[in-house]
């Protein structure tokens, strides 16, 4: 790792989660989650389906209210944050959603420019150059006039990333960058994430279940299982963890649960 990254890794946390509990109805999906992401760090949140990683991301983005616990982003408490403070905070945070979430009625260029129009009063020509630069960064130079429907899945992901980084956010959330992509495109995106961290000093939180990609880019990883954190540590320590459930996940071994016969019967009979 370069000296630039080393220096950044010693900085203050950009994400702090304390004892986060979340429910869907009566079902507890996050159970006392603690998480710290340091400045300049690429932090992977990993886990299988139903592990709670997507719910955790939605909480980090302020899209869901917490049942209990605290979330701080860039030093700001999310719960009870004043509207104007939230607006300022959002300028410094980029989000690249799993499906891209591009507006289908706008060109790629208009989609990428959108955050600049919403949050800045920059000159029109400056905004246009910024959007084109970010499209170049994600290897979509010349695609600004295309409509989202004309792009492949990998291109949509890259366009969404261009929009997420157009404001040069301090903190970038990237949901499932590799999902549905072929290995070469996936590796290119990983490379891009590393370059963004180096050049723009971004702190990047990636939610993924793709192991190969995760270990390629991670400084630290948090592994979730059934709403609880199994481990949150450096990529090497996660790889060598003695926790059998972590190793099951890393080696793609299915979970073997002891059957609670009474509970199973109750579920089947609805009692």
């Amino acid at each position: 790792m370069s000296s630039v990254s080393d220096r950044m890794l010693t900085s203050d946390p950009v994400v702090e989660v304390e004892n986060l509990v979340a429910h869907y109805g009566s079902h507890k999906v996050l159970d006392g989650v603690n998480l710290t992401v340091n400045a300049g760090e690429i932090h992977i949140i990993m886990g299988g389906s139903g592990s709670g990683k997507s719910t955790l991301l939605r909480h980090l983005l302020g899209l869901r209210r917490v049942t209990s616990g605290r979330i701080r982003l860039l030093g700001h408490e999310l719960d009870g944050v004043h509207r104007s403070e939230l607006q300022e905070l959002r300028k410094q945070i980029g989000v690249s959603f799993q499906g891209g979430a591009l507006l289908s009625s706008m060109t790629v260029g208009e989609n990428v420019t959108l955050p600049l129009r919403e949050h800045t009063r920059l000159d029109e020509s400056t905004m246009a150059i910024m959007a084109r630069m970010k499209l170049e960064v994600v290897n979509l130079g010349g695609f600004e006039h295309f409509m989202p429907a004309q792009l492949s899945g990998g291109m949509i992901k890259r366009a969404a990333l261009a929009r997420a980084i157009v404001m040069d956010p301090k903190l970038l959330f990237f949901d499932e960058p590799s999902a549905g992509l072929d290995p070469v495109v996936s590796a290119e995106l990983d490379e891009l994430i590393l370059r963004l961290r180096e050049a723009m000093h971004m702190s990047i939180v990636v939610v993924t279940h793709e192991l190969e990609s995760a270990f390629r880019i991670a400084d630290r990883m948090t592994v979730l299982d059934c709403g609880k954190i199994l481990i949150s540590d450096t990529a090497d320590k996660v790889r060598n963890s003695a926790n059998s459930r972590v190793q099951d996940l890393l080696n793609r071994r299915p979970r073997v649960e002891e059957l609670d016969a009474d509970a199973y019967l109750a579920r089947l009979t609805g009692e």
């Binding site: 920059l122 400056t126 150059i129 910024m130 630069m133 157009v166």
Partner: peptide, 11 residues
């Protein structure tokens, strides 16, 4: 220097 600064140089 952020992208808006670099965009000014490009312009």
């Amino acid at each position: 220097i952020d992208s808006s600064g670099v965009a000014s140089l490009v312009e």
